[in-house]
Nucleic acid binder design. Sequence first.
DNA 1: TACAATGTTTTAAG
DNA 2: CCTTAAAACATTGT
Length: 270
Amino acid sequence: MPELGEVEYFRKQWGKGLNKKVLAAELNADKKIFRGTDAPALREALRGAKLIGSEAHGKQMLFRFSKGGWLGIHLGMTGKLRVGAAGAARLKHDHLVLRQEGQSLILSDPRQFGRVLFHHGKEAPDWWRDRPVEILSAQFTLKMTGQFLLRHGRAPIKAVLLLQSGFPGIGNWMADEILWQAKIHPRRPAGGMRPEEVRRLFVKTKHICRVALRIVGGHDGDLPETWLFGRRWGRGGRCPADGAALERATVGGRTTCWCPCCQRAGEEFN
DNA sequence: TACAATGTTTTAAG
DNA sequence: CCTTAAAACATTGT
């Protein structure tokens, strides 16, 4: 599930635990989701600590606790954050449960492509300090975007949009939406874009992030019917703009959906 | 049964 | 060291 907007939605869910103490952290330290993390240390450090803040950055989340607890969460493909009852039983894929007075903050992730990180200390850990420029920040510029595309010039543009080092928070449906709205074929080499196309891609990237954060992040209604979003799942979809049958194929290792009429690119890419 | 699923990470090759 | 492409990861649902 989680791309930019959904990550923000889940962050807000755990936000319900703000300013409340963790009575106990329950987890299975040997689960894959804790790979590379000292899970027992996490459990000890969070017992009695208060949740004092949270942030999202692309698909990464950080939950800050008193006494120097820094909890990083990535939801992978199937991760979710929810709030349950105080004594809620741990379900099969509930890998981390923070018990608070009156409620439980729960992380579930069946496939465990997600990851939990933990750092105990005064300073922010490296994994939170070294982050790419956020798409909606003023530092994310047209020039930067053009440079990033050139740097990955031979890869298909779809694959480049999925690189978190350049487009943090963009996932599979957002990449397809950006390319459809910008009228660019997903298999076009990133470095072969005309200036006008780079500009369209840049503008649509910012726009789609903004709307996704508002609508998906706030669970505030549905994405516009005029978007590709609602038609791109499964075969047989039709382009909202011209009614053409949508194409589906694997591009950049992921299922990709596009309109062969709106997103023309010449024979060699179809 | 076999394949696909809103994502990285690893491995191998250029 | 850098980029690219493909496989791997673990589980569920169609």
